[in-house]
């Protein structure tokens, strides 16, 4: 279970929120000239990194407002929360990470948000 700080309501339990998937996905403005492959890319393919992930959340059991978050998917640690009108922050590093040889946390090394 993670705690999310809604930029409008403050810290709430994750179960109050719904995840909206990857953030900053832009609908192509030239659909008529896109190939099937490119159109399929836009419809079905989303980033799925183990690490820094830009995503959308909505406080569905609260203020019902959308906002963006940057989360480390290998630990569930939320690195930054920002409103939709704000610019996408550039975050390249995260702390709180037990590194395995490939730079990923060890299997099951867990959820730092919980441990804190």
């Amino acid at each position: 279970m993670i705690i999310i700080k809604c930029p409008y309501c403050g810290e709430r339990d994750q179960s109050e929120f719904s995840n909206g998937g990857e953030a900053h996905v832009v609908r192509p403005n030239n659909p008529e000239s896109l190939s099937d492959k490119d159109w399929g890319e836009y419809v079905f393919f989303r980033n799925n990194p183990k690490g820094i992930f830009y995503e959308r959340w909505v406080h569905s059991h609260g203020c019902k407002k959308w906002f963006n978050a940057v989360r480390n998917t290998s630990t569930d640690e939320i690195l930054k929360i920002y409103k939709l009108k704000e610019k996408r922050p550039e975050i390249t590093e995260f702390k709180n990470c037990l590194k395995s040889p490939s730079g990923e946390p060890k299997v099951g090394s867990g959820n730092f948000t919980v441990k804190k």
Binding site: M1, Q14, S18, N19, R71, P105, G108
Partner: peptide
């Protein structure tokens, strides 16, 4: 869980 994660845990709810 309703969000992407690699933690091999999941939420209590």
């Amino acid at each position: 869980d309703g969000y992407n994660s690699f933690t091999q845990r999941g939420g209590y709810d």
